[in-house]
Amino acid sequence: MSLPATQGAPNGALMELHGLSKRFVKTLDLAGKLASKLGSSIREETVYALDGVNMTVAKGEVVGLVGESGCGKSTLGRIVAGILEPTEGQMYYEGRHVATLEPAEAKAVALKVQMIFQDPFASLNPRMRVRDIVGEAPLVHGLVSSDEFEGYVDDVLGRCGLDASYKRRYPHQFSGGQRQRIGIARALAVRPDFIVCDEAVAALDVSIQAQILNLFIKLREELGLTYLFISHDLGVVEHISDRVYIMYLGRIVETAPTEDLFAAPNHPYTKALLREVPRLETRHSKFLPIEGEIPSPLEPPRGCHFHPRCPHATARCREEVPVLREIAPGRESACHLNDEA
């Protein structure tokens, strides 16, 4: 490590998040301010997207992040990838506090963390050729000289299973699966260590999804990559991840090694999620869904965020926020029920 180890960042962790929060505030315009001065009920609206998230990703690890839409998993991914700034909390990359880095170092870290997006149709510039989509960043950042450029692009495309002879084409000339490969090639072109995959296979057909998942597994082995794999699809996460974080309304409710989590979930929300995942093995099932929907992050419930839908909720759950505590080696869960057992 180039800097003295920072407090709270253990060795071996590639990325560490401490008490990360993100709030989106919709500020009032002039008319709104006047109205509120005059006693109207208009107030600034705050979306509590993330609330005190702690997360550790070890080098070479694949960490799955699961949650329903609106739980803040994409916001977390974007903060990790450096696209958004956290409102509170610290982020450490290889033990260095990212927010306090010198500009040159910050840029180096930003390059090391890349992101792959869900929609392969929206995330590629339709007016750029594949060659430029993939090659622009390494050229600008001086990773390759203009002499090596063509060879480098061919190499990256080949690694992602794309025919280099197509590199002068535009994105619309490719199928969904191929476009996702272009997105992966673009991320890999700057030689990252850490890749945030935000629902990277959600938009693909089953047979194409298998091809892309296999590509992720292959690239991890070849390049020693670390992934933060964000998905709502538990089957995909179970397949690819070493460890899983379950998120509900801006908070991590449970984390465990993949096998343990799927074998014996602890948090009531995780249990409900796992029970409701459709699987090939469950036939003619009697669906017994949990009631209700994820509450609005504009007004998250007091206490445990899950209590309005939880079958075991007690008075304490309505008032007191449960903290994420270790319940077994390597396993953490945020539920008051664990105190009583």
């Binding site: 329903e68 839409s69 409900a272 999620l273 459709p278 869904p289 949990i290």
Partner: peptide
Amino acid sequence: LDVTIQAQILF
């Protein structure tokens, strides 16, 4: 839809 909502609809 999310899995929990999907389960409700399938139900």
